[in-house]
Design a protein around this nucleic acid. Structure first.
Lengths: 332, 332
DNA sequence: ATTCAAATTGCAACCGGTTGCAAAAATTTG
DNA sequence: CAAATTTTTGCAACCGGTTGCAATTTGAAT
């Protein structure tokens, strides 16, 4: 059924090496030979087996695309960008779903079995141990949306979550809220921790402002709604910095259902600027995370690392900015 | 860096075949041998190269997961289900993004290069030519969310879109709407066509009801909103059947922005029952499409077809049902 | 026309595994 | 205990390609 190099060689009346060479660029083949081979290949419908060639070249062009985040719509955009960007460079994403996976060793084994050329970890919640494990296995790694660091252990591309926390805090301060709170995602996620610490550190400069915080158990609508409903039962703050847009939207839904007004009674600022945030029936004020830039930079960094495996680890941090919409009251 | 079978054989003092056999189940190995080999493998951190073995076995355990739908949040759930389901069966999804791709031949070539064992097409908008092209290339194919048919050319798993159209129509009829319309997705998609024809055929039984229809150019929020804004400028219908939830939400946003009330002034019924549809600030009445069942059935069918490549093509159709929420007025 | 360097080609070994076959070892049977 | 079976093991060829090396061809220079 499937045509092999040998058959093409026979039909063209040349050696197998000749056929191989016409299909690997940079190899030495005369024009005459190339034409002969291409004709035969055409007639037979031949296309080289990438996996077989990987045996000798050591390159599969397979990239593990690892994530544990299949419930935040923003990741659909992330996957879209990654798959297209990788395809455009002749690389193939092998999708790995790490939801519920706790042992990096399993993932390492799996990715080794398929001898991926590199691994992109696309997650802000996967413990750093996973990236490290891939690196230790000798596989080039880029952690997208990972924790920014001044001494990164692996390549990291993303945002400065601490700074985002500060930015959100400054925004609330500027609008003269006197009682604010952080509604974070899973407490174990580095992104949550960093956003939290930035938020707190900025507010520490304003001791007259009352601060509270709590955590939803996932970056999801339901978790955000549930947590906000709980908060509304006690004494809610005047404004919340939610650790993620999807949390914000859940919180928003809880507030509106309680008959309160946004931003009249309670203000909300999110983070990510997902597509939905600008939908007119949501209209969320949020901090924009430059997804496309992060993804395309991650891909560039991966490609560079494939060509230079011992490349020194670096962190690439992209700036975020506040997108003002309708869920915070205006500054005076 | 990477440990091979030969090294394990040497360390264990046995032949390469012995090592190979301990790692392929069903092969003949004594307990003593197995222990010796496993010890050596353990010490060296060996795990077999799936790609190399695929050369002789003809099986890569790679499944092409092909889609062109990276803008409808429902597909994030679809990808989640597929990746987990495939992983659980020891299969690996190779993600292929066919956005903007028009020539099936390219995709076929690509999937052949990586010798995937099978292809799952997950899309309701990809032209049937793609599935056919994969089949003609001799690759087992399952088209999930494809067009249901009484004489399927390839395996199809999904819903009966014509029946869904009828169901939506019956729902509107029961609620005594006298002027209704279909707001479909891309006109070229078979899913749009079928939903449309079902809708029209049912309404043909009620000649006193006025019917209109129009099409958005994508299954997306923006397209739905844009089209509904246009419709509001003319003389809108009393109730709309939108070809998809995300379209419905876009339409909803346009209606609310125009100061009209839902369901007071205009009713909406969607299709899919995506997670967001039940969010309290959306609360969309819609037709539930059983995603999980479709995905898991697709995977089962794929696995079965891998074991029996000449399996006769079949269509697996799952029933849908109306989920009543808040965007249609109650029946009298 | 010769000489010499450069470009092209084929041979054969190799990548990391699997597997049919026959030899060797273990087990059962008489 | 020997013979007959069954199980286990290793050899060697093969899967579909790539690549170093030497032989051959081509082309330029003399």
């Amino acid at each position: 059924m499937v045509v092999t190099l040998k058959e093409v060689a026979e039909r063209a009346g040349v050696s197998r090496s000749a056929v191989s060479r016409t299909f690997t660029d940079g190899a030495s083949v005369s024009d005459k030979m190339r034409r002969k081979v291409e004709k035969a290949a055409q007639e037979l419908g031949y296309s080289p087996n990438a996996l077989a060639s990987s045996l000798t070249t050591g390159r599969t062009k397979l990239i593990g695309l690892v994530s544990n985040n299949f419930h935040n719509p923003i990741f659909l955009e992330v996957f879209d960008q990654f798959t297209r960007g990788l395809q455009d460079r002749g690389l193939r994403p092998l999708l790995v779903n790490l939801t519920d996976e706790v042992d990096p060793a399993n993932s390492v084994r799996m990715l080794r079995q398929y001898s991926v050329d590199g691994v992109v970890v696309a997650s802000s919640t996967l413990p750093p141990g996973f990236s490290k494990a891939f690196r230790d296995a000798g596989v080039p790694v880029v952690h997208s949306f990972g924790r920014s660091s001044s001494s990164p252990q692996v390549h990291v591309v993303g945002i400065d979550n601490v700074e985002c926390g500060r930015m959100a805090a400054r925004e609330l301060v500027a609008r003269r809220y006197s009682k604010v709170a952080f509604l974070g995602g899973p407490e174990a996620a580095t992104s949550t921790q960093d956003r939290h610490s930035g938020f707190m550190s900025e507010l520490a400069k304003h001791p007259q402002i009352e601060v509270a915080c709590s955590f939803a158990d996932a970056y999801s609508f339901d978790a955000g709604r549930r947590e906000m409903l709980r908060l509304l039962n006690c004494k809610p703050a005047e404004a919340y910095f939610c650790g993620d847009d999807v949390l914000s939207i859940g919180a928003l839904s809880a507030i509106l259902d309680s008959g309160l007004d946004v931003p009249g009674d309670i203000g909300i600022i999110g983070l990510n600027d997902m597509e939905m945030a600008r939908w007119e029936n949501i209209n969320l004020t949020t901090i924009h995370q430059p997804i496309r830039q992060i993804v395309s930079s991650s891909i560039e960094l991966m490609v560079a690392t494939l060509n230079e495996p011992d490349r020194y680890p670096e962190a690439r941090i992209f700036p975020c900015s506040v997108i003002e919409r309708g869920t915070l009251r205006p500054a005076p």
